[in-house]
């Protein structure tokens, strides 16, 4: 049976697994945005926290994904269900690009603009919301883009702990030594990654100050 036949015969399952995959990536990316962007802002305000926070995010990134899933297994509540575990791991991986891009985006805002804003009597909050964040938005979205694309690839490994997603086919195909089944997982995942890359790339361009 070739790849196309397999996909046609199992199209409901392919869609279901794609849906699971999107769920894992979507929830973890939203969580990572909600945590990573505030942390990125925080380290522009408190330089002393810069090294510990960026350092931790860096270290997380170096942990092999299978090992990270394993480490998190004993965690209460989270360890009870595979999808919670996968979401936590994916969130942790997505933090680094988000924190780093938020930080570099804000730090990259023209110093004369920031100085003018301060000199005119903007409060720190006004400076952040009216000047720094709008001007850093393109760089921050670039971080979301990198995080999302990485997550879509990484989420395939979540199947190893039973969290579902397109990785199911990849692991099943490996066990069956069946390339069609592997491709039924790999190709939709690759398409998702490309779509995310193109759409977020478009958004990044639109929101970058010209």
């Amino acid at each position: 049976m070739n790849f196309w036949q397999f996909v046609l015969q199992n199209h409901t399952e392919v869609l279901e697994l794609t849906g699971e995959h999107l769920w894992l990536v979507g929830v973890s990316t939203v969580l990572a945005v909600l945590i990573g962007i505030p942390l990125g802002i925080l380290i522009t305000r408190k330089p002393a926290l810069n090294k510990p926070i960026l350092g931790s995010a860096n270290i997380i990134q170096t942990i092999p994904s299978l090992a990270l899933f394993g480490f998190l297994l004993p965690a209460p509540w989270i360890g009870e269900r595979a999808d919670r575990l996968a979401i936590l791991a994916l969130t942790l991986y997505a933090l680094l690009p988000l924190i780093r891009n938020t930080y570099t985006g804000i730090k990259g805002v023209d110093r004369s603009v920031v100085e003018a804003a301060r000199g005119m009597g903007m409060t720190d909050g006004q400076l952040l919301w009216q000047v720094e964040l709008p001007l850093a938005l393109g760089v921050i979205i670039a971080g979301v883009r990198v995080a999302t694309v990485i997550s879509i690839g990484l989420a395939t490994i979540a199947a190893a702990i039973g969290a579902g997603g397109l990785g199911e086919y990849i692991f099943r195909g490996l066990a069956m030594v069946n390339n069609s089944v592997i491709l039924a997982g790999a190709i939709p995942a690759a398409i998702l990654a490309l779509l995310a890359d193109v759409s977020l790339g478009w958004l990044e361009k639109r929101l970058s100050p010209r």
Partner: peptide
């Protein structure tokens, strides 16, 4: 903040906000 709002500030690199229109810049 009060001190600075009572003092106009114009600098060499101008420091205009690139994402604001002229009107919005003047209105800051």
């Amino acid at each position: 903040i009060q001190l600075r709002r009572g003092i106009g500030y114009a600098i060499q690199d101008v420091g205009l906000f690139p994402h604001f229109t002229v009107a919005r810049n003047i209105a800051v």
